[in-house]
Design a protein around this nucleic acid. Sequence first.
RNA 1: GGCGAGAUAGCUCAGAUGGUUAGAGCGCAUGAUUCAUAAUCAUGAGGUCGAGAGUUCAAUUCUCUCUCUCGCUACCA
Length: 677
Amino acid sequence: MKKYKRHLITSALPYANGPIHIGHLAGVYVPSDIYTRYLRMRGEDVISICGSDEHGVPITLKARREGITPQEVVDRYHELNKKAFSDFGIAFDIYSRTSNKIHYETASGFFRKLYDQGEFVEKTSSQYYDEEAGCFLADRYITGTCPHCGNENAYGDQCEKCGTSLSPTDLISPRSTISGSAPVMRDTLHWYLPLDTYEPWLRKWILEEHTEWKTNVYGQCKSWLDQGLQPRAVSRDLDWGVPVPVEGAEGKVLYVWFDAPIGYISATRELTPDWEKYWKDPETRMIHFIGKDNIVFHCIIFPAMLKAEGSYILPDNVPANEFLNLENDKISTSRNWAVWLHEYLVDFPGKQDSLRYALCASAPETKDNDFTWKEFQARNNNELVAILGNFVNRTLVLTNNYYQGVVPAPGAMSGPDSDTLSAVMECRKNVESNLEAFRFRQALAEAMNLARLGNKYLADTEPWKVIKSDPERVKTIIYISLQITANLAIILEPFLPFSMDKLRGWLGITGLHWDAAGRSDLLAPGHLVSSGELMFSKVEDAEIERQISKLHDTRKANEESEAEATDRKEDVTFEEFTRMDIRTATILEAEKVPKTNKLIRLKVDTGIDVRTIVSGIAGHFTPEELPGKTISVIVNLAPRTIKGIESKGMVLLAEDEQGRLVFMVPEQKIKNGSPVR
RNA sequence: GGCGAGAUAGCUCAGAUGGUUAGAGCGCAUGAUUCAUAAUCAUGAGGUCGAGAGUUCAAUUCUCUCUCUCGCUACCA
């Protein structure tokens, strides 16, 4: 691997419309923090950059909903998230924000440079405008039919079905998701980054020069490149964001995905006047830590922007993680299905490392992973408490009991002694190689093996027995155990900074260089160590049950709020109501519509006639149980062809918040065709 | 139905350019041990690597089909 002079670590800028949860931590910030701490311990020149991403349409919508300004929204979450990171010891050198003045300068300067170099394609286009909401529609607030695969619910920026990135105008029969209305076209001028012209270069850069990237990242990039890139608009019609620094561009701002990654640059400028050293010197190694949703922006778009600008370096690696689930369900900010960092610390004060450990140990490195409270408890109690905390404790207690806390001078080393010491060095090497390959789970497991090694050493040498027969020998045993403990303080520091800080306090040592790991003379004979308190405490069943029931409550609240959320529809007049012709009827036949999941074709006697109705009820009823049922039917609903079958009318069913369906049946037997009023 | 991911020990997962006895942690059983937050250490049990077919001297690993699971998505008038 090429040797670099310094490192620039970036971590995805969290979007400032919600708090940080364990998914963010496991996927991005814990790995980035571990990596950063490791590099620092190696004495590398490294800075770690992060901040709030504060622009974009969702924030304006949230502000509108709550009747406050976008700035008030982002202020709230910026402070909350900044504190959460610092409480968890995430070692950013700066946590900045994109509503800062320096970011406005940086982003508009960046844009202006590309503009002056003629890198953009300027295009007046008709864009979708929602007349009801009175605004141009951002890409993701338009849905429509994908031109590539025919998916009818493609978003304006991307079709989730075939993965193609799109422009809103590509969509067939678009709809506004804000008002539900069909948007109208209005002319508007925008600037486009012609990604297509960078395609050959990107192809070479990623597919040929970065085959070492994680397979999920590499594969994702390959599939985008294979589908062909399209020019991408870098501006938007919106009043919240960095104004486009071009004359006559009033009411236009930089697209949030153009301005957000520039936030990394702004934050660096804010941090140090030497910022250019980190961004423009080819001897700097830049690493982006992100989640899988961000791959296209960090591997394709941002690099294209940097390349277009011309003076910047490109990322050397983008170790993107997959997603973390919570108790078998997707984490969701809007559904409150998450463990929020600020709430965790209230419930588990001082247990930052327990969460960091559990999240790293089951980080979604290669595929989505599930976080459960039971597993969290097991990791804490069986691994941190029982293996690591226990080894440290027994070593310190033994030292205290036999030598009043003074490190004894070792005698001659026996075979098991030197075997153990060389295993320490082996362990360090394993941790290193895994960290450098961004395999944090494995790195942590290897690091924990050092504590296991210590436990085994004590069990094998049995100093509590030997002390009676050969007290001299015990000095060596305790000496070695103490050296292992000191090594733990180094090797586990990137993973468990709070606990290792405690440990260093007990051992009376200050921060050690990574290269000291593996040595067997970290604590000199005569040095005083304190017996220490316990490094970790158990998580009791009751605490776990409380968390689980908290989630249960959330789930229940979600269901209830969903039930309440259905607002009453607008008033209709009696005349309008009487236009609907609802009749009692009987199902004669029922069969599943082939090649569908939900549809059943019904033959129904309405008293007026016998007709065919297609109904989406196959998830709740089998065709066998339907014939003979008395039901209610709207008989004058305009016919509609569904899957090639003409459906005349609609069967009335009630649906509860879980989506359960119940037929509306007459209370007593009544003639088919009786009108319902 | 479409797209994507997956199916390996009781649980959570690793892994193999196809080749002798398929791994880890947890859990379980047995034994050892008491310095330690009933923690630790050793040993062991437990898997026809989702089903079927194909390629091959050889497949759990490659190909195809199927089944099931998860996510997204479609049909609901």
